[in-house]
Structures are given as C-alpha cells and as structure tokens.
Amino acid sequence: MPLLRMRDATFTRGEYAAGPITLALSPGDCATMVVASANEAAVAARLACGIVKASTGTVLIGDYDPRVQSVHCKRIAAFVAHEPAMLQETDFPRYVRYRAALWNVDERLALRRAAKLRECVESMHAAFAFPLVGALIGRPQLVVLDRPQPAYAEQIVALLDGLTFVSTHVADGEAAAFARGHGSQRLRA
C-alpha cells in the first residue's frame, strides 16, 4: 500500500500556488521534488503531509484524505520546515517535552529517543536539528522536508535511513544531494 499518493494535486491561495503534483511513495521510498520557487516548495511540502488541503486533485496519506481525516494523516506524516526554529541548545529538553505532549508520546521515552537522535546530528545547528529530531519523536512513517539545508544532506539522509521521505527543493543540485541511491524518485514541476 502506498504511503503517499498525490494525483494532480494543486493548491492555490493568493500568492501561494503549487502543482499539479503526481507522486506515489511506498514504504521505504524517497523522493525529491524540484519546483520553481520557494513559495511553491513550501506549499508542495505542506500538501504532502496534510497541513494544507488540495484545492483540486487528490492527496492520500496512508489511505487517509487530509480533507476529511487530517488527524490520521498527521499521525503518519511528519513535517520539517525550511525556516530555522528560534531555539537554543538549552531549549532542547523543553522543546522535546512540548513535542512529546503534542504527539502524546511518553515523555521519558521521547527524551531518550531525542537525545539519541541529536547525537546522530551533533554537528547540525540546533535551529535545524531540533525540528528534525522533534519530527521523529512521534515515530512517523513518512517525513516531509521543506527545502532542507543541502549542507546537512548527508546527516539528514543518514538519520532518515529506512524511513520514507520526500523533500522539496528549488535547485537540481540541492535535490541531488538528497537523492538516496537508485530507489529515489526525482520529480520536476
């Protein structure tokens, strides 16, 4: 069963528009999406994890439609924003507790798991590492990255090893850094 299916999915609201996007991801797959602008990349990423609802076309996340079952979709898909979070290294436990509470994950387990994940991306700046680590606390099946930093591509791909993920980019070079082996799909809008 595909984890993410997008069929001619579009989104339009004011200056924000994306699509049509057609994509199918099975568990373990990964895909990189190259789009024309930063706005389009932001919208495409949010469409893929159910934060925004498609204006036309279909998006199914693990057989759930974000338009009617957004809570189920958000249990499956995690989102990592492009913008760095305004967080310091000292905010880590508070941030993990906050994310654990929102995803209803046991606090001690979340702290332990987050510490382990943080070790894997130790050299990554806290502003980029925390959202990534936070997204993985809820053990998502699908991770959607909005324009991830190419400088951290190797660490991000290593951290997401075995997970299904899709990332949006505005340049081919950036997308190439996130392509994982021969199994990765490369889309161009």
Partner: peptide, 9 residues
C-alpha cells in the same frame, strides 16, 4: 507549525 502538524482536531 508544530501545532498545525500535530495530530489534533
């Protein structure tokens, strides 16, 4: 973003 991407109604 955290609130919007969390599984909450």
């Amino acid at each position: 973003l955290c609130e919007q991407s969390a599984p909450l109604f």
